[in-house]
Design a binder for these strands. Structure first.
Lengths: 215, 215
DNA sequence: TCGCCGCCTTTGTGATCACAAAAGCCCCCA
DNA sequence: TGGGGGCTTTTGTGATCACAAAGGCGGCGA
């Protein structure tokens, strides 16, 4: 098999496959319950079963994929209990991340958040669920990067990953065309240096979208 | 290669290796910075490189092992910043888990916790670091199982896993022979149904041990 | 005696293969 | 026409191999 580059940076072929699959799952590119096969993934990315297996097993370890008792893997179909739990985890982790980012949030960061937020609004207007999820996650990640807490951010991303397919199902179901209200509250709290307000705004933003899955 | 049983339950050979390694790491059986090799692990557990590789890569994905840029794996040597972050994560997650477990904590559970806690004290008295860590984690897990929050508990265990080798280094360094004081506070708060007290006791217990690593 | 260069060994990576189990499928019969 | 049994294909698992790169070690020179 011929690649464009013999060694694509640190890591290897399985890392490329892993990253591609991870991004697709996190952005909601794959519907819940969709099955994946080792040979299929390998064929799709031009690698043998070995890197495909490593990528898939890694995603299983992170909770992004579900491994049936017979070894078949598929994207998970979450129960309501699990969704509530994951929402609670998002709330716990992201409130803390935002709070830690607050003292370091200068005006340049806030400007960037506002730009990203307009991209969120645009995706919402165009009813582009994948674009909406991607921009929304970028908004949150940009803020949390300032917290200088890599382990915590990694955990938050793991939760996003587990929610990816479900978020797709959610956002394609509800027809929202307005940009998220709570993002504006987050930005306002950042500008004002208002920590309790920021915590509340983040918790509301995180909880709001996921709460309407109980229906 | 001959096994005692052709199919050891759900999963397979790699699952057995994974579980064994995971337990050893979480209990602090392996010192920080210790290197592992695929062929070495395979030889130790009587399997080929494939299951050894899957187990190790899974532990890497969970943060239990560190993967150098050249592909070598070793148990991580945590920086102080990372230890503080992981302690904060433990605090966030475990306070929430304890709080959720409180309404369901009946007398039978409290009795069991007291029994486990005496095992903790005994291990401390015998200066048995691995036994101490194991009993201590069992104390916490027994309580959190009552929270009925599997995703949250899994995250907490992932943090324990990342801290395993470091906890070993910590507990073998300091010569404590007394059972943990905060466990008694946890039990007392559970008996009294005192939620704020429980939150404080859990946070103190989690933070206390890890804080003295800054030295 | 100390440091550096080159060789040999160890190690991870990806590919391929044999095997068994699971899944899907089709045909036949009630 | 609907369901069940058996066959074929698909799929995951573990083993093994070839290869390249990294590591370690010893010897040689200054």
């Amino acid at each position: 098999m011929i690649y464009s580059k013999p060694n694509d940076g640190p890591g290897a072929a399985h890392d490329r496959v892993y990253r591609a699959l991870r991004t697709r799952i996190m952005h909601g590119d794959i519907a819940p319950g969709q099955a994946l096969t080792l040979r299929g993934v390998g064929r799709e990315y031009g690698v043998s079963m070995t890197p495909a297996r490593e990528s898939i097993r890694r995603l299983v370890a992170e909770g992004a994929l579900f491994l049936s008792s017979s070894g078949r893997v598929s994207t998970p179909e979450l129960t309501n209990e699990r969704i509530e739990e994951l929402a609670a985890l998002r709330s716990l982790l992201e409130v803390e991340l935002a709070s830690r980012a607050l003292p370091r949030a200068h005006i340049a960061l806030i400007d960037r958040l506002q730009m990203i937020n307009s991209a969120v609004g645009e995706a919402a207007h165009n009813r582009d669920s994948v674009g909406y999820i991607r921009a929304n996650l970028e908004f949150h990640r940009t803020l949390y990067l300032r917290a200088q807490a890599p382990a915590m951010l990694a955990m938050a991303e793991t939760v996003w990953l587990q929610l990816g397919p479900t978020m797709r199902a959610l956002y394609s179901r509800l027809r929202r065309t307005d940009p998220p209200h709570f993002h504006k509250l987050i930005i306002a709290a950042l500008k004002a240096g208002d920590e309790p307000g920021l915590r509340l705004a983040v918790r509301s933003d995180v909880t709001h979208g996921l709460r309407m899955l109980a229906s």
